[in-house]
């Protein structure tokens, strides 16, 4: 996916700026003291916890800092740089954009997640990006549960200039996915995006239904879905662990999309998730506009999170 470099970072930074402000202020406040002592380290750990990194990851990052710089004179910039580096090192291996296999026609992308995480909006944005990339795209409106979900997706389809396959509310989502897949195959469409109803990961029945969608589309192609993206809301806390764990177990999630990063939430749980599950983060959402989907860049994300200017 091509993307003008300065514009994407500008947009990301705009989005993250608000999130960052608090982290930055907090860290700056800590470093009026200069010498890195235990009290400072404790405060730093708090700052990381407030960004939803979780107790374990915050602990580790702070002990890492302690090992290398304890009792040394450090500046605010030093500490933020060190944290950004450590966070970027964790995130770098998972900053992998969505790869569309041109040999598949269509490359099937299944989009899943809990209610309200932003699946439908993400699909709208994703469709637009892929179209801009010169791909032919179709969408299956697989959220046959929520009222007006189909209408919502149809509007996104119009905006992106992409056909949307749908059925009535209450219809079988797996059947719709199957038909959409067959249709896209016949038309030689490059990418098929399948939306699904939001479901909480502890609802066994709904998770079974998701597994069924996968089972059914595999009848047409055993390798499908070629990408299975789990959409996570940046405001989510430690429950993100449970979400990834259960969805991954059920349907082999192979990518994450983190949405609503333009808010005050920092999405710091992503760092812990990257460490634990090593799932690629294929894109991030930074707004409600159709262009507000961005590729995920580990260094930029980490430095932005820590309130630092990018080096490049």
């Amino acid at each position: 996916m091509s993307e003008p470099k300065k514009s994407w970072f500008g947009r990301l930074k705009d989005g993250l700026a608000k999130s960052t402000q608090r982290v930055t202020q907090a860290i700056t406040a800590v470093f009026t003291k200069k010498k890195l002592d235990q009290a400072t380290l404790d405060e730093l750990e708090d700052v990381l916890i407030q960004a939803d990194l979780g107790v374990a990851v915050a602990d580790r990052l702070v002990s890492n800092l302690k090992r290398t710089r304890f009792d040394k004179e450090v500046t605010d910039e030093d500490v933020r740089g060190a944290f950004a580096q450590d966070i970027a090192a964790i995130l770098a291996p998972v900053a992998i954009p969505l790869a569309i296999d041109p040999a598949r026609k269509p490359h099937v992308v299944l989009v899943i997640g809990v209610n309200g995480s932003g699946k439908t909006t993400t699909i709208g944005k994703l469709a637009k990006r892929l179209v801009e990339d010169g791909k032919s795209v179709s969408i299956a409106a697989g959220d046959t549960f929520r009222a007006a979900a189909v209408e919502q997706l149809k509007i996104w389809g119009e905006r992106a200039g992409v056909p949307v396959m749908s059925r009535d509310t209450g219809a079988d989502a797996a059947g719709l996915a199957f038909d959409a897949f067959q249709g896209a195959k016949a038309d030689g469409t490059d990418v098929l995006l399948i939306d699904t109803a939001g479901r909480l990961q502890n609802k066994t029945g709904l998770m079974e239904e998701l597994a069924k969608i996968v089972r059914v589309i595999r009848k047409l192609d055993p390798a499908a879905p070629h990408s299975c993206l789990l959409v996570l809301d940046a405001t989510v806390g430690q429950n993100a662990h449970s979400q990834v764990e259960v969805f991954k177990d059920m349907v082999q999630v192979d990518g994450l999309v983190v949405t609503k990063l333009d808010g005050s939430a920092k999405g710091g749980v992503l760092v812990a998730l990257a460490e634990r599950f090593k799932l690629p983060v294929v894109a991030i959402g930074v707004g409600e506009g159709i262009d507000d989907l961005r590729p995920f860049d580990a260094t930029h994300f980490a430095r932005s999170l820590m309130g630092l200017e990018t080096a490049s």
């Binding site: 916890i49 939803d52 405001t235 806390g237 430690q238 429950n239």
Partner: peptide, 15 residues
Amino acid sequence: ADAMTGQDAVVTARA
């Protein structure tokens, strides 16, 4: 507000 909300809950609620 979502029960799954993390540390941001406090920022959102206050605002």
